[in-house]
Amino acid sequence: MKSPPPTAGTFVSLAIVVIALAGLGYLMPGLSRTVIESFIYATLVVGLGVFVGNTGIVSFGHASFAMIGAYGAAWFTCCEGMRQVFLPGLPDIIAAINLPLPVAALVGMGIAAVVAMFAGAVLLRLNGVAASIGLLSFLFMVKTIYENWDGWTSGQSSLVGLPMEVGIAQAAAGLIFVLCLALIYQGSASGLLVRAAREDEVASRSAGVRVWRERLICFTLSAAITALGGVMFAHYLGSISVVQFWLDLTFLTLAMLVVGGRNTITGAVVGALVITSLRDGLRTLENGVPTPFGIAEIPEGVQEIALALLLLVVLVARPRGITGGREFNFFR
């Protein structure tokens, strides 16, 4: 299970693909929704992949960070003038500040990173499966808190009126930004050490790797990246609710990561692109497509079953994902 060394080449190659897809989205307006959504999912999955790929710990808690980031940014962008009507608990200072989206996104990422640092300090003392379950407990905890924190989150109802500023260009910029972060981390000393601990924790410990510390760095970064995905999601849809960041998103992002290949950044991006396209295709079919032979239509709900089956087939036939554990690079 050896990951190739990360290179600037991978970054440039992936960035070119992203820009090409963005261009395609501009040329064919029918595809623009799929392109934007796949970029946003790719951002979320890169965030998840930075942690899962480098540490080898499956995380069921990352959807929380997307939520924390999304709400964190929304506190500064939502519904100008009406903010304290929707969120009566928000202090006057926050309610008075309106930030442009990129700055609000950084605030959301920062909040998620701080939460991740504290949560990770506790959770990453656990190993392997126990850590996965700990992260799942974390997901439940954060969800319950946000659902009952009415004054700041409008509880179980959704918060509407966010500026819908995320289009193709913004989504592409966000994705390229996180690709850069993720690949820099992968090539950094901490990235190498945390992967050493993934391969053999005992051996790396005995060679002096402070596993907990390196994992915490990795976790914090991955939470910040995931948070940006959440912020983009919120400002693409224009509304957020707690259930958007729940088990469905957890499953979907994990499926994307595994189908693409969970040890590489390329895998995260490819998985997100492939599964978003597939889902959009099936969704179109569920709504019915006119053909010369009548309307082609599949029953609603096939999409979820197909996704679960695809994931199972990939797990059985190609456990290292479509990309087979190699980073994509034009210049090799």
Partner: peptide, 9 residues
């Protein structure tokens, strides 16, 4: 991790 994700799927 692969087994864990399989059961999740």
């Amino acid at each position: 991790p692969t087994l864990l994700i399989t059961s999740f799927a």
